[in-house]
Design a protein around this nucleic acid. Structure first.
Length: 446
RNA sequence: GGCCCCUUCGUCUAUCGGCUAGGACAUCUGGUUCUCAUCCAGGUAAGAGGAGUUCGACUCUCCUAGGGGCUGCCA
């Protein structure tokens, strides 16, 4: 049986965005599902707009998402001779002709045009859109070689697909009209016409298709914001496809096993950052403890920076790290939040949230409370969350621990939210806790 | 303008003619809790409009409206 081969063929004219990368994801999944080959082709024939940086960014994003390709990257510009040879062939067979033309930007010159059939219907069965048909007369002849002699997308694309033996072309909806043209080229060349599947667009919150102008559309942006590649991958997959039941969070193996191009939606889907954020949280919860610990340590090292050594609380004590990770991981939604939630453990110059200070510390009587706590805490030898909680419980006499808990939290962490207070105090240790309570009483509380 | 495609809760979607229209995110309410988050329980919320086919239509057909794509010496 013939090997199934698909390709992702972006043009490196800007940073790869989520619409493009979803096409890559669907191609990849399709190939893995059927046991075929997934190829990467860089369509860099637009010399004026293609950049090496964009190509580099493309590689990084694909690698980040785990979109591995099976053969060496194919650069379209390296196949120019073949493109032109094929054009000669078309010229000779009467499927193409030269003509004087004036371009949009006013350049006049001789280009090669592909001659479309003048009658009949061009049709194909799109794997996602179903049967497609168009009258040949509705499609005009189109240029395939520029006046400077360079091949244009249409011819380069088709010739490369022939050369790479591509069997299924899965690409964006914006190419449907091209498909009618390309089919004619395949036929003029006597080459087998591949199967097509056109993917709907992803639209932004305004309902408009994503373009390179949408800042947040750049794939790398999500990485920088602390999204996990698995979450983005999973979310993008769900935008226009579902396994047929209520499952949404799927691992890579399940995706490969369940993915079917036929079930991909025809309609455009709106990108919902909130659901992506939720998905990210789901994946963060699933990170193995050891792996998450490494991320926490990385973030800690970054925080320590120049202050390293000085503020380091009990490094090397793995039990301490494990306890910290157990507290932090379940309430982390973005990797980037780590810095904020960890800073109070690693720096004494952590920032104070002005609102929290106002609400919890700048209140009459708080100073006395804090000073009282310094005295009481100083007497505690068994510095554990349990002991500390028992002590505050006793102080509050069942009337709610709020009046003690809130000021302490802000005094030692600078924030009004975070992990459980007593766990936090245990992690900080007695010495730091006392120092911070004292400092807050002296400088912030009333 | 022309050609092509699309239309279920705010959003992503399930439904292969029988629907009291299901799930997820978001949102709201209640519970748990020292905060935030989590977690648990529950609520609000949809078939663009109109004809037709049919015992029966969200599902099939047609029309209208709305949205999108293409209409380059871009890809």
């Amino acid at each position: 049986m013939e090997e199934i081969r698909v390709r992702f063929a972006p043009s490196p004219t800007g940073k790869v965005h989520i619409g493009n990368i979803r096409a890559a994801i669907y191609n990849w999944l399709f190939a893995r599902h059927v046991g075929g080959k997934f190829l990467l082709r860089v369509e860099d024939t637009d010399l004026e707009r293609s950049t090496p940086e964009a190509i580099q960014v493309l590689f990084e994003c694909m690698d980040w998402l785990g979109l591995n390709y099976d053969e060496e990257v194919f650069y379209q510009t390296k196949n120019v001779k073949r493109h032109l040879a094929v054009v000669e062939q078309l010229l000779a067979s009467g499927h193409a002709y030269t003509c004087e033309k004036t371009s949009r930007d006013g350049k006049t010159g001789t280009v090669v045009m592909f001659k479309m059939p003048k009658e009949g219907t061009i049709e194909f069965d799109d794997i996602v859109k179903g049967h497609m048909a168009k009258k040949a007369e509705d499609i005009q002849d189109f240029a395939i070689v520029r006046s400077d002699g360079s091949p244009i997308f249409h011819i380069a694309n088709v010739v490369d697909d022939i050369d790479q033996k591509v069997t299924h072309i899965i690409r964006g909806d914006d190419h449907v009209e091209n498909t009618f043209k390309h089919i004619c080229i395949f036929q003029a060349l006597g080459a087998p016409v591949p199967k097509y599947g056109h993917l709907s667009m992803i639209v932004n919150q305004q309902g408009k298709p994503y373009s390179k102008r949408d800042g947040a559309a750049f794939v790398g942006e999500y990485r920088e914001q602390g999204y996990l590649p698995e979450a983005l991958f999973n979310y993008l997959l769900l935008l226009g496809w579902n396994p047929g039941d209520d499952r949404e969070v799927l691992d890579r193996e399940e995706m490969i096993k369940l993915f079917e191009l036929e079930k991909v939606h025809v309609t455009a889907a709106m990108f919902d950052p909130k659901k992506l954020a939720w998905m990210n949280g789901e994946y963060i919860k699933k990170i193995p403890q050891a792996e998450f610990k490494a991320k926490v340590k990385d973030a800690a090292a970054k925080l320590l920076g120049d202050a390293a050594g000085e503020d380091a609380p009990r490094y090397g004590d793995e039990a301490w790290w494990d306890y910290l990770v157990a507290q932090i991981q379940p309430r982390t939604k973005f990797l980037n939040d780590l810095e904020t939630s960890l800073v109070c453990f690693f720096r004494d110059d952590f920032p104070f949230d002005e609102k929290a200070v106002e609400k919890r510390l700048r209140k009459d009587g708080v100073k006395a409370t804090l000073l009282d706590l310094v005295e009481r805490f100083a007497k505690i030898d068994d510095w554990t969350a349990q002991t500390l909680e028992a002590m505050i419980k006793e102080l509050s006499q069942g009337n709610g621990m709020g009046p003690w808990v809130h000021p302490i939290r802000v005094a030692v962490s600078g924030r009004g939210e975070g992990i459980g207070l007593f766990e936090m105090l245990q992690l900080l240790g007695k010495e730091k806790t006392l120092a911070r309570l004292q400092k807050a009483a002296d400088t912030l509380a009333l």
